[in-house]
Amino acid sequence: MIAGGERTLNVVCVKWGDKYPAYYVNRLYSGVTRYLDRPFSFHCFTDNGDDIDPRVRLHDLPVEPFESELQAAMQRKGRKGAWRKISLFRPGLGGMEGQILGFDLDVVITGRLEPLVDAAPDKVAMRHEWRYEWKGQPGGHGSVFVFDPALHRYLYNDFAADPVGSVERNKGSEQYYTSMSAFRRGQLHYLPGSMVCSFKYDAARIPPLNLMMEPRLPLDCRVMCFHGSPKMEEAVEGFEAGLLRSTRPASWLKRHWRV
């Protein structure tokens, strides 16, 4: 809490396994520090806190009452998604109260974050998933999300009541479960697509310009998502993947993805 009773914003990420090294957490923390001008606490739920910045509040990965059902559901063919994030929907997790600004680790903060935090404080805020947006279908993208667990208890309770069914009914995708659960209740807000960008859709140049010009940083972009390929290291150095998907080095990325 801060003066006047206003709650400190909770910024949260989840790191498990060895796919993303500790410096992904540290650079995310650094980016939030540069681009968020209000009190916040930064939390990381992880199974390995080695080398993570001491200013980050570390928590063990939650173990849920439905852990075995969740693991069984995720072993089936065709299942995908960061289902560990379901624990973030539990009110009071890690002693957190109030609004949560959550990030996947494969994002880079490139601009002021206040417009995302303040966009719809009483709703679940996510960017419209690009594929669904193009098709005119509902559904959110989960690389950045804003919500208050106390206002949206159904996100945790509905899943806890039927983990296997929740995975089955939502394409095996946590972000689809999250966004459609809120959508059906009229509580989904789409963050502006100009502010939450995709490197492969919004930054990479179309062929053959991708071989001659560096990727662009859209003017209003606040969060650049590196879903799929390339990831940040590849984009910084230049990504070689044939005529259609190769990119030149992104010099602007070095300014933003750093400690």
Rank of each mutant, 00 (worst) to 15 (best):
L36N: 02
D53E: 12
F42C: 01
R57Y: 01
Q75F: 09
P54V: 04
P54M: 09
D53S: 10
G81I: 04
K80S: 12
A73M: 14
P65Y: 07
I86K: 02
G49M: 07
S87N: 10
L61P: 03
P65H: 09
V56E: 03
C44D: 08
I86G: 03
D37T: 04
H43K: 06
E67K: 07
Q75P: 02
C44S: 05
G49N: 06
M74K: 10
L36C: 02
P39Q: 12
F42K: 03
H59C: 08
D50R: 13
H43V: 03
R90E: 14
S87V: 05
E69C: 06
L70N: 01
L70E: 04
F42S: 00
R57A: 05
K77S: 15
F45M: 09
K77A: 12
V56N: 05
D37M: 05
C44Q: 03
K80C: 14
E67R: 09
E67Q: 13
A82P: 00
K85P: 01
D37L: 04
F42G: 01
R57S: 05
S68R: 15
D37E: 14
I52S: 05
L36I: 04
P39H: 11
H59D: 08
A82S: 08
A72P: 01
L61H: 10
V56Y: 04
R57C: 02
D50C: 02
D60K: 12
I86F: 07
D60P: 02
I86S: 03
V56C: 07
F66D: 05
D47W: 11
P39C: 08
G49I: 07
R76F: 07
S41Y: 00
L36Q: 02
H43T: 03
S41H: 09
H59A: 11
F66G: 01
R57P: 00
D60M: 13
T46M: 10
K77L: 05
P39G: 08
A72W: 05
N48S: 12
Q75K: 13
K77C: 07
Q75N: 11
R76V: 15
F66L: 00
L36G: 00
A82K: 09
M74A: 06
P39D: 11
R57F: 02
N48G: 05
E67A: 14
D50M: 07
H59F: 15
M74H: 04
E64V: 13
K85S: 07
A73Y: 12
M74V: 08
C44V: 10
M74F: 06
L58E: 11
D47L: 06
D53N: 15
L88I: 00
R38Y: 03
E67L: 08
I86D: 05
H59N: 02
V63R: 12
H43S: 03
R57I: 08
F42P: 00
P65E: 10
R90D: 07
E64W: 13
H43A: 04
P54S: 12
K85I: 01
N48F: 06
L58M: 14
D53G: 03
E64F: 12
L58P: 01
D51P: 00
K77Y: 14
A72K: 14
L61I: 08
